[in-house]
Design a protein around this nucleic acid. Sequence first.
DNA 1: TATAACTTTGCAACCCGGTTGCACTTATTA
DNA 2: TAATAAGTGCAACCGGGTTGCAAAGTTATA
Lengths: 136, 136
Amino acid sequence: MSEKPEQKLRKRNIKPTAMRELVLKVLTDQKTAISLPELEQKFEKADKATLYRTLKTFEKQKLIHSIDDGTGPVKYALCLEECSCSVNDLHVHFHCTKCNKTYCLHEIPVPSVNLPKNFSLESVDMVVQGICANCK
Amino acid sequence: MSEKPEQKLRKRNIKPTAMRELVLKVLTDQKTAISLPELEQKFEKADKATLYRTLKTFEKQKLIHSIDDGTGPVKYALCLEECSCSVNDLHVHFHCTKCNKTYCLHEIPVPSVNLPKNFSLESVDMVVQGICANCK
DNA sequence: TATAACTTTGCAACCCGGTTGCACTTATTA
DNA sequence: TAATAAGTGCAACCGGGTTGCAAAGTTATA
Ligand SMILES: [Mn+2]
Ligand SMILES: [Mn+2]
Ligand SMILES: [Zn+2]
Ligand SMILES: [Zn+2]
């Protein structure tokens, strides 16, 4: 089932360094999306730039995707195993206005929209604001 | 038909100062959303803080609404006459990845979504990325 | 193995949008 | 008119994001 961090990195063509495995571990343990500032706090002594570049590498290799819920720093969450970050993989995100956590609702695909004539679609971001089950 | 800026401000309970009428004029002439940095450039000599507070006032009084398309500074666009920024008034936004303009698609309401159990909805942001009719 | 080439990391500095404190001006009210 | 409140301009600050550069670590080559 759940494979080693190292394997997960290799599968996405990311050289598994110590730092990267640690970051992946944090992301895996996390049930909700995490921002760079939050990630920084998870480490006793880690450099912001390194973490930043780690996230960028992960994102480029589609190990994680970014979520801008509009309420602060950009957050990141693990992609599903089979994810290629294409339009098919797009899902709704939920931001809780009470606890400020941001959830991936993987089971809810973003609804399709009929754009005006001559507008073409590349991607969609849909963020629902509200109260999450934990805060209710 | 199109009423005076002064009237439009009064209707939203905003005291019509010279500055505010100028900003409203810019927003009205604009077919797409505009950011604070962009707004600054529209004036020969205007203070960022004043413009900032003007936008905040307009937003609080629901004369304009903000749009975070995730590609830079927050943008602002006029609300429709009858808008009260409630869930009913929510519409899809479109960001053109070529010209970087952001459009209000007032005629396209945000689709409804079925949230997981015990998640409640307060608001929704939906931004479609793609190429606009002008850039096509 | 020794060396060269490339990659990753850490540190510092910077950029920029957003925000606030404060004094000054302008409008409103008593 | 005097007192009060609202709006404006300037400067400084904050925080997330980003980059340059040198040191350390890794991989490839002879
Ligand atoms: Mn997600
Ligand atoms: Mn809009
Ligand atoms: Zn919550
Ligand atoms: Zn365009």
